[in-house]
Simulated assay, not measured.
Amino acid sequence: MPAIETPQEPLGWAAPEFSLPDPSGQVFSLGDLRGVRGLVVFFICNHCPYVKAIADRLTMDAQVLLDLGYGVVAISSNDVASYPEDSPENMAVFAEEHAFPFPYLYDEDQSAAKAFGAVCTPDIFGFDAMLKLRYRGRLDASGREAAPDAPRELIDAMRHVYRTGRGPEVQHPSIGCSIKWKD
């Protein structure tokens, strides 16, 4: 399956509203998740080799972002009928295995992925305190193989956002597996 790259498009649009459950059924909305500095949204899934390669660093970097005052959430939008490994039950296992310090939500009708324009896993969106998009890029230079010593691009970008109110000029697209859309 070929890798998909996130599109380079204008920044500054507002985070779309959503209300999604975690695997236990607890529902979270955009307002519940935002931090004082903004919100970082990860579109991920359990089976993607790109996500598996960064899952532990995702946990570490998310904790740094939470400590900086950002809210953090992950959303899985894949069609679980075709990809049962991405089911809510398996999401709970994946989140526990990687000690996610953030909610991992299930987008069953794929409306959140469509509203954000998410195209792949991982697809990362960084919003400022006013919930305007300032970063859409990768976690770091890892691909299907972990690069543990790679510069922390997402953390650096979100530090830049809270210092300047703008996203960094250079933003590298994320690369991953396509979101598995329902027919």
Rank of each mutant, 00 (worst) to 15 (best):
D149G: 08
P101N: 01
A95H: 01
V170E: 13
Y50E: 06
I175F: 12
P49H: 10
A112K: 07
Y70C: 03
A113F: 11
I44N: 12
A55K: 08
L33M: 09
R37S: 09
A14Q: 15
Y106D: 03
D107F: 03
A81R: 11
K132H: 13
A3Y: 09
R159H: 11
S19R: 15
G117H: 07
Y106K: 03
C120P: 03
P84W: 10
D67F: 00
L131F: 03
A14H: 14
P122T: 09
V119W: 05
R134M: 15
A92R: 13
V36K: 13
L133K: 06
R37D: 08
E97C: 01
A74K: 00
S29C: 08
E89C: 01
E9Y: 04
R166V: 02
T6H: 05
D140Q: 04
L105P: 02
C45I: 10
V170L: 11
A95C: 01
Y50V: 07
Q171Y: 02
K52M: 13
C120R: 09
A99S: 07
S76T: 12
A113D: 14
D128I: 10
M158P: 02
D86E: 02
E153T: 14
E169P: 09
L139R: 05
R136K: 15
A147H: 12
A146C: 05
A157Y: 06
F18M: 14
A147T: 13
G117P: 06
L20A: 03
S82R: 15
C120I: 01
E153K: 09
K114P: 04
P148W: 01
K182A: 14
A147Y: 06
A150F: 10
P168D: 04
P88G: 03
S174E: 04
I179E: 03
V161S: 01
T121C: 07
R34P: 02
E97W: 04
D32M: 05
A74H: 00
H160A: 10
V170Y: 04
G165Y: 15
A147Q: 14
P148G: 02
A14P: 06
K180L: 07
D128K: 07
Y162F: 14
A99C: 02
G167Y: 07
A14C: 11
V27Q: 13
S87E: 00
E96A: 14
A15P: 04
N78L: 05
S111G: 12
A81C: 00
C45Q: 06
L66A: 10
I54V: 15
G31S: 12
S29M: 07
A113N: 11
I155L: 15
D32F: 11
K52D: 12
K180M: 04
L66M: 05
D128M: 07
A95W: 00
R152K: 15
V64P: 00
I179S: 05
S29R: 15
E97N: 13
